[in-house]
Amino acid sequence: MSHARHTEEIAARWLLRQQEDGWSADDQTELDAWLDAAAEHKVAYWRLEHGWSKVDRLAALKSPSAAPRRISRLRGFWRPVAVAASVAACLAVGAAVWSVPGLFQAKDFHTDIGVRETVPLADGSKVELNTQTRLRTAVTRRTREVWLDRGEAYFEVAHDASRPFVVHAGAKTVTVLGTKFSVRRNGDQVEVAVVEGRVRVADASWPAVTPPPVLTRGDTAIAAGPSMIVAAKSVERVANELSWREGVLTFDQSTLADAAGEFNRYNRKKLVIADGPTAQMRIGGSFEAENVEAFARLLQQAYGLRVDDTGETVKISQ
C-alpha cells in the first residue's frame, strides 16, 4: 500500500469514528494529535471531510432522510469496505504529492475577537484574516484549496493558470486564477466581494443547471443556502466594505442595529440597542473598529442618545 493511500485510509477511519455514538473529548484529542503530526494528514482528512459533506448535502436534497440513512449504512457495513470506498473517492490527491517532500503546505489559522492576521501561502498568495475567523489551507504542486469555516478573509491570489485557487465556504466554492477578493461566512450565509479580476461562485450542493455566476471588479454576491443574488456595486462601496483591513468600520445609511452587530464582532464589550426606534436609526461614517466608547460618545453628541456603560456592555437608548 502506498503512503498516500495509507494516510487516506486512516483519515477515512477517523471520519467513520466521528459518526459513531460516544465520540469523546479524548477521541478528539487523539484525532487532533494525528492531524498535527504531519501536513499530509490534514490535507487527506480535509479532502475526505469536504467530499463526504457534499455527498450528504446532495442526498439531503433528494430525500430529507437520505443522509442519516447513509450514515447508518456506513455503520452497518464491514468497515474495511466503507473505508476503501471512501479512499477511492480521494485518489485525486495523488501519491506523488505525498512522496516528494516540500510540495505541499497544509495549515490552519484562527483569529480571536478584534485580531487581524496576514498569512502568506506557499504559492505566493496572501490572505488577511479578519476578527473571529477560522481558515484552513492546503497548497500543493497540483492544487490550491482553502476552507473558510467562519469569519471573513481577504485574498490576494498569485496568478497560476495551471492551478485554480478554490475557496470552500460552506456549500459555496469560489474559484479564481489570480485576483483580489473577500469572502465572509456566517453559518450558511456567504458574501463575496471582488476588488480586482474575476471569480466564479458555485454551489456544490446543487446541480449546475445554469453556469455559475462570474463576478468582476466591484461586484458582490450574497448567498443564503442555495439562494444567491449578485449585485453590481461601485468600487468605492466594495472598498468601504473592506475598510476593516485598516481597522475601520464604514457605514452608509446602515441601521444602528446593523452597526452595533458589526462593532460586536470586534469587541468583547458589546453594544446593546435598547429599543426598536433606536435600532432602526440610520447612520453613516467611518469609525475605529475597536473603540466602542468613542462610537457611543459620537452617537450621544450627534443624536442626543442615552449611553449607559456597565463595563461589559454599552447600552444605547433614546
Rank of each mutant, 00 (worst) to 15 (best):
G247W: 08
E8M: 14
A260N: 04
R245H: 12
E8S: 12
V43E: 11
E236Y: 07
V314L: 05
G284Y: 06
D252S: 15
N267C: 06
R200I: 10
V119Q: 02
A138C: 10
Y154I: 12
V167C: 04
T118D: 09
K180G: 08
V119S: 01
H110M: 13
G94L: 04
D123I: 01
A37V: 03
E20A: 11
V292F: 01
F295S: 05
Q189H: 11
L298Y: 10
K233Q: 13
A60K: 15
F295N: 05
Q28K: 08
A12T: 03
T210W: 09
V55S: 08
D32G: 02
T118C: 09
G187I: 02
D108F: 09
L121T: 04
V272H: 05
E40M: 09
A204F: 08
S72R: 14
V314R: 00
D258E: 15
E196R: 11
P211S: 13
E290S: 13
V192H: 03
M228T: 12
A106L: 05
V214K: 04
P226M: 12
A96T: 13
E128H: 14
V174H: 00
I283V: 02
R265F: 11
G187R: 01
E49W: 12
A95Q: 10
Q132V: 13
G225W: 01
A59I: 09
A289Q: 03
D123Y: 01
R73W: 14
E236G: 10
A224Q: 10
R282M: 07
A138R: 07
Y154N: 14
G51E: 07
G76E: 14
Q19F: 11
D108I: 06
T29A: 14
E262Q: 15
S63W: 11
E20W: 03
A59Q: 13
Q300S: 14
Q18M: 13
E40N: 07
D160A: 12
L121K: 01
G102E: 01
A95M: 07
W98L: 14
V83K: 00
G285F: 07
L129G: 02
A171I: 11
A171R: 11
K107T: 13
L74A: 15
V199Q: 00
W206N: 15
E40L: 06
L129V: 05
S125P: 01
A89K: 12
A161R: 15
A44G: 05
R297S: 10
F295L: 02
V194R: 03
E312S: 13
P120R: 00
L135Q: 07
G197D: 03
A11H: 05
V93M: 09
N291W: 00
R142I: 10
